[in-house]
């Protein structure tokens, strides 16, 4: 049984080892400086460029759009669920949110490409069929269940005596929620955002399907662009020989992605832990 438990350690170590090993091969050919500063990512062209910035920009833009949806909607929903909803309502809503989180990502990709983007085109006819806005919004909806459930957990962990203290002063539910519960749960709520970011950054199929697959250094969400994850999918779909520089480039891209999500995950869990220690 100890061996079974060690599988998780082994997996983590192997992930790092594989990513590092293949990336080392990649960095033998490409200098780290080019990787971090070149503004073009065209590893499969005759004149290859290996600048991660365009992919990074695509990842950041789609994630930010997602957060702009998930943070306000998620926070308000969580406050409502934790402080206003009747237990009965909670029993209906929470499983529904779980279902929302369980829908396969490829289906969300379909949704972004064939439902959300056409809807956006009704508002702004100039948006191309591939863009970052539509998938960004869909990513926001995808991480919504995670953000809601983690922040609601944080708010419900605030002891009842604090709420009673506030009600006893004549505060309304909203005043209590806003001035006592939310401030008391801040680190738990922020942890929910951080873990949401990590999920958004690593999201693959939605952007691979609906954001286009051309690396494009832009901050405009109306334009198409590839993310780190979309690039990996694109290469994997093709038939690159094992050991080629193109093959290794997806591991280098994956390493960047892994470092980002590791950092966000650790940050998020440290904050959650700190929050739990208070209550």
């Amino acid at each position: 049984m100890l061996l079974a438990a060690l599988v998780s350690v082994a997996t983590t170590v192997t992930i790092l080892a594989v990513l590092l090993f293949e990336s080392l091969g990649f960095f033998e050919v490409v200098s780290l400086q080019d990787f971090l500063t070149d503004t073009l990512w065209t590893p499969l062209f005759d004149d290859p460029h290996y600048g991660i910035l365009p992919l990074l920009a695509g990842t950041i833009v789609t994630s930010v759009v997602g957060l702009l949806v998930a943070i306000p909607v998620g926070t308000v929903s969580a406050i409502y669920l934790s402080e206003f909803a009747s237990p009965r309502m909670r029993e209906v809503i929470k499983p529904t949110l779980e279902l929302l989180g369980a829908v396969p990502t490829v289906v969300y990709g379909y949704f972004a490409l064939l439902v959300v983007t056409p809807a956006l085109q009704l508002l702004w006819p100039d948006i191309p069929g591939f863009n970052m806005l539509g998938p960004g919004i869909v990513i926001g909806i995808m991480i919504l269940p995670l953000v809601i459930s983690l922040s609601e957990d944080a708010m419900r962990a605030v002891p009842m005596v604090l709420r009673e203290g506030s009600y006893a002063m004549g505060a309304t539910h909203l005043e209590t929620a806003w001035r006592v519960v939310v401030p008391a749960a801040t680190s738990g709520i922020v942890a929910a955002y951080v873990l949401g970011v990590s999920r958004a950054v690593g999201e693959t199929m939605v952007v691979a399907i609906a954001a286009g697959q051309n690396p494009n250094l832009t901050w405009n969400p109306m334009e198409p662009a590839a993310t780190i994850t979309a690039y990996i999918v694109q290469v994997a779909l093709g038939d690159l020989p094992h050991g080629s520089i193109g093959y290794r480039s997806i591991f280098a891209a994956g390493l960047v992605l892994a470092v980002m999500t590791f950092a966000f995950n650790i940050l998020g869990h440290v904050m959650r832990k700190r929050f739990r220690e208070v209550y």
Binding site: P159, V161, L162, E164, G165, S166, A168, M169, V180, P183, A184, V278
Partner: peptide, 11 residues
């Protein structure tokens, strides 16, 4: 106004 059994200052 009410004072509770266990001190419950807000954080």
């Amino acid at each position: 106004a009410m004072v509770f059994q266990k001190p419950n200052p807000f954080p």
